[in-house]
Amino acid sequence: MKTALGVSILAVMLFPLYWMLNASLLPSTELIQPEPTWLPIHGTLDGYRNALQSQGGHLLTSLYVALGTVAVTLAVAVPAAYGLAQLGAPLGRTLLFALLVAQMIPGIVMANAFYVAANELYLINTPIALILADSTLCVPFAVLILHAFMRGIPAEIREAAALDGASSLRALRSVILPVSRNAVITASLFSFLFAWADFLYAVTLTTRDEAAPITVGIYRFIGAHISDWNSVMATGVIASLPVAVLLVVAQRYVAAGITSGSVKD
């Protein structure tokens, strides 16, 4: 009984996603019939062909930007979390608090300032600008989750490495990082998803279509082809694929990220 109710709730909540998948497989002529087609039995892949043709470049840009964001985020967050959790760097609580508060600055405020800075540095329409801007969505979360994990690693492990003559950096690389593997994967996954999903920085820091990542690609695509819902929805499905893949491949890390608190704005 309760399972049935639970399934119904889930069906209602996931309906928009099913409806997107459905429309992505139906020819446009069928989408404007008075009676909705509930199952894409006589489906077509035209939408996907159109989507890949017009959005392929945007998908690659998104991939590149998301991977770059992961790299920048880890480069800042891993040493910081290690210094705070294991080495007891001074003002640790202040830094964590600053990151917590920084997360709350409205994105539009940051976008305004990033646009001015990127303009001065000739970085508008470059992936670098997007990578740096997107990393601000990820660094606080990454430091918090890595710090929470590394605090739980007994100091003796690192001290043993130090007795063997390892420097702090060496201890991080060969002892702490391998032990923290799961936390690092979780932080990377979420950084990837945040950067992949970013729309605000993408739409403000790219003015040329070639430079735009997939979120802006879809946005402009609806603007230009509002009647072609088949292709629009196919693009949406393709843009969701990384999420779907990550959910399947790395489900337990996603769960770990979600339970560690408020992770998405």
Binding site: I9, L10, L14, M20, A23, L193, A197, F199, I222, I258
Partner: peptide, 26 residues
Amino acid sequence: LGGALRSLLLVPWLLPLVVSGTAWRW
């Protein structure tokens, strides 16, 4: 199946908002 249903409920949350917004627009 409670646990499985609960974690599937999170899917909409992980999708890019541009994508789910577009689905809603349709």
